[in-house]
Write a protein that binds this DNA or RNA. Sequence first.
DNA 1: AATTAGAATTAGATGCAGCTAACATTAATA
DNA 2: TATTAATGTTAGCTGCATCTAATTCTAATT
Lengths: 160, 160
Amino acid sequence: MADHSNEFFTVRGYTMQNQDNQKLTSGMEDYLEMIFRLCGEKGYTRMSDLAGALNVQPPSAHKMVKKLAKGNYLNYEKYGLIHLTPAGWELGKELLARHQTLEKFLRLVGVSANILEDTEKIEHNISKETLECIFHFVRYAEINPHWISEFQSYKQNKQP
Amino acid sequence: MADHSNEFFTVRGYTMQNQDNQKLTSGMEDYLEMIFRLCGEKGYTRMSDLAGALNVQPPSAHKMVKKLAKGNYLNYEKYGLIHLTPAGWELGKELLARHQTLEKFLRLVGVSANILEDTEKIEHNISKETLECIFHFVRYAEINPHWISEFQSYKQNKQP
DNA sequence: AATTAGAATTAGATGCAGCTAACATTAATA
DNA sequence: TATTAATGTTAGCTGCATCTAATTCTAATT
């Protein structure tokens, strides 16, 4: 049971360690999160909407959807609509919440451009613990606006 | 000159957009950062030390080193030692600093396990702006210990 | 100096996620 | 209904980063 917590790995290395343990790849997470967003209104979404929303070509979306279907996150039949299963819905909800927590956090510390991109990059595979810590941070900052604004005004004076 | 700042992409999508602009891949960054660490003491490092430090097999390290050599980040001849070029040294220093900023940040918000792993995951390709914001946050927290400890003690009461 | 042990390299395979081009299906319209 | 337009699928290629197995080179030991 090697304990790797003090060892370095490349990004790829971490990915591979997690792939065993039933987790989704970053790519799958991206898709599932977006499918959840798109399903929000109508309860379903289409291949082309998904591809369009993620700026990806339809064949790429198609492959991923088949993969997610095999993992029982959604139901899909050829030429049909994409419907999340309860499991997919749950996970999608979590993924979106995670995304939003990180986005809020970035805004709090003053990021203004590239928020979407940076959120996207950070959100995958950060540990539950880290997410929780950031979540608490965001929560605390929301409850105590004066507290975070201390920092924010310091920062504003730093950079004109 | 498409402006994509409000559009969604998958992680892969963002990676590809940046690949054009002469930047290093995450993998290359991981290696360069580690090479910089390892060179610190002796001024050079070896293939096997590098592979060992990153928990990767020698052939993987070998390929990457050749790539970095082609990009003029280091000098390497067959069976020889790995020496950073001035450019590689500069960049390596930056990468390590980035890593340390993120690591400090995670500690400040209370992350204790998996720090290394999460830092690794976050550090690649977050924008300069985000890094700067986090840097200022860390700096402010260091200068004003009472400020951050307000949050920390709130958090401690939350989770026993 | 010859042999052996340890490092480094090459070759070739794998998996992920993207793409284009070509083909198939469904839906809309004339 | 027949044709066309729009969507979806399949096949096959690319690039990145990993691996194993086999080979080559260097260094150490006798």
